[in-house]
Every structure is written in structure tokens, then in C-alpha cells.
Design a protein around this nucleic acid. Structure first.
Lengths: 146, 146
DNA sequence: ACACTATTTATAAAGATTATAAAGAAAGAC
DNA sequence: GTCTTTCTTTATAATCTTTATAAATAGTGT
């Protein structure tokens, strides 16, 4: 299943004339297999074993390439580093304010918001982003216990 | 009108035991009067005339204080620096992908999304954030002309 | 005006991301 | 398979934003 996602992603890259390097392959593979919305540094560290000589710049460069092609979304969360999310189906994020965990959830049709925004602001609207902030179950129960 | 907002904000600060310094007064005043969602550096530069000796750290420190008290919201937009928004009524942002302009718009009741997210993820949800991305009128017409 | 404590300032440090230039490797042509 | 061109990687330095630190300064209540 994620095999196919990876293959599609690679095809999509080829289609836009982006070369497939071992590093790109590995970064994409990691992103597809990862449920944890990793930071650039997470990816760098995760691939240290396979590519002892890989530069951080390579990770950043390729994440930018993937983002430009539309394979990956960049999530900027408050103070710390950006997190990267392999684009599959449309979904939103719930972010825990205690531990930083990010959990996906689906919600139908916020297209209406885009239309209204477009009407009110005069923008040609391309897309939107939404996040819900709160405290996850783990952190919630951790606090109750005293 | 923004006079009153400023006065309310100052009262609110006093109420929580935060001292009113000239710098804080000026930063708040600037935020209330500003429609442009400035960065910390914008604020620093804008107040350079009035406070030639003010430190950047002061701006950051106070923006943090204001955020903790709930007077100000921090917006993290993509690659560059955070932007700060004086909290008035609830509203969302439309962001131009060409020039970075941020325009406010109102939309009623996305509480439903919070409820669903809470139900699906098990989070105790506190708040949410939504942004619409696109191209503003200025940038749109600029491109048509050739 | 005094005293107590929070705040400011100046500076340095940390952390994330990008720029640069030389070395290396994909992909298509032959 | 080899060549050649061009893109990519690497290593390093630089940049930019934000925070930490410690001494000097200034609010606030009495």
C-alpha cells in the first residue's frame, strides 16, 4: 500500500524532470512510512545509518523540491522547526500543546470557507490549512494522576 | 475606538500584575493601530525613533508576555518570521502567496470541527487555527497585465 | 522618597535554514 | 557501455530568528 504511494511519488518526480537519487528515494520512503510528521533533523538522523555522509542541506533541499512538486506539505508549528507531511488524502491536524504530538483527522468540505473568504477578501483562493490545538489523551491522563 | 482597545489591554495587563513600561505601552499601541500583522523586527524598527536604545530582546520578551496573557496571537507563516496579531474578535486570515499580505475575514462557528476532532482523536481541544492561501487582487491583476 | 522586584539593555549563544563552490552522479545521446 | 551535460550532493560558512545571561534601570505599593 505504501509501496504504491512511494512508486507514484517517484513517477511523479520523474514526470517533472526531477532526478531520482538514492538520497531522494530514501527521504521519500521515510516520509511515506512515517506517521509522525518528522522534522528535517528527524529525517537527517533517521538516515544517518544508510547515508553516513549525507549533508543536512540535502535534506532541506529535497524537502523543498518535494514541496514545490506538491508531494509534501510543510507544517510550521509555533516556535520550533517545521514538520513535513507526505501528502495523501486531505486531512487536518490535531496538535498536542503538551507533548507536540500530531494526530490526523478527517473533516468534510471546508470548501465553503474558501468561497466565503474569496468573496470577502477578493483573493483567488488556492487552498487552506486548519489545525486544532489541545491536549492529547496521554498528557490528559498524566495530569490527573497525582 | 482603538483608543479603547489600548486602554482595555493596559487594564488587562495591570490586572494580571504585569508592569506597564513605556516600551510595553508603545508596542501595544503599535499593534493595536497596525492592520499589517507585523513581525517582531517590524515592531523593533517602527519604534526605533521613539526608543533608540530599545533591545530586540525587549520586543520578543513583551510579545511573549502579551501572548501568555492572551492579548496577542502569534502567527507562524511558512519560512520567515512569526507575525503578531492583536486579538480583537475571532477572525481568520487570508494569506497572499505572492506578496505575503495578510487580510482578515470572519466566518461563523467552526466549533463543530473542534467537537469532531475531539471525538475522533481523544484530544481535549482548546482552540483552532485556520488560514486560506491564495493570490490577492493586487497580485492577480499585476500578472494579467503583460 | 524607599525598597522590592520586575524589566530593560547589551551581548552572546543557540537553533534552524540557506548560500556557495567544488566534487560527484543521473539520464539521455551515441 | 561510454560520454557528456546538467543537476545534485557534500562540506562549510553564513544568515536569520529567537532565546539566555547578567548587570543596570525603572515600576509599583507603601
Amino acid at each position: 500500500m505504501s509501496e504504491m504511494q512511494l512508486r507514484d511519488a517517484l513517477d511523479s518526480l520523474k514526470g517533472t524532470g526531477v532526478r531520482i537519487t538514492p538520497q531522494r528515494h530514501a527521504i521519500l520512503e521515510f516520509l511515506v512510512g512515517s506517521m509522525s510528521h518528522p522534522t528535517a533533523d528527524d529525517i537527517y538522523k533517521a538516515l544517518e545509518g544508510k547515508f553516513p555522509n549525507m549533508s543536512v542541506a540535502t535534506v532541506y533541499n529535497n524537502l523543498r523540491v518535494f514541496r514545490e512538486v506538491g508531494l509534501v506539505k510543510e507544517l510550521t508549528y509555533g516556535d520550533s522547526s517545521s514538520r513535513f507531511d507526505f501528502v495523501t488524502t486531505d486531512h487536518y491536524h490535531a496538535i498536542c500543546q503538551e507533548c507536540g504530538k500530531i494526530v490526523d483527522f478527517h473533516y468534510p468540505g471546508l470548501d465553503e470557507v474558501e468561497h466565503l473568504a474569496s468573496h470577502v477578501t477578493g483573493f483567488r483562493v488556492n487552498n487552506h490549512r486548519m489545525e486544532v490545538y489541545g491536549v492529547c489523551q496521554d498528557c490528559g491522563t498524566k495530569k490527573e494522576a497525582h
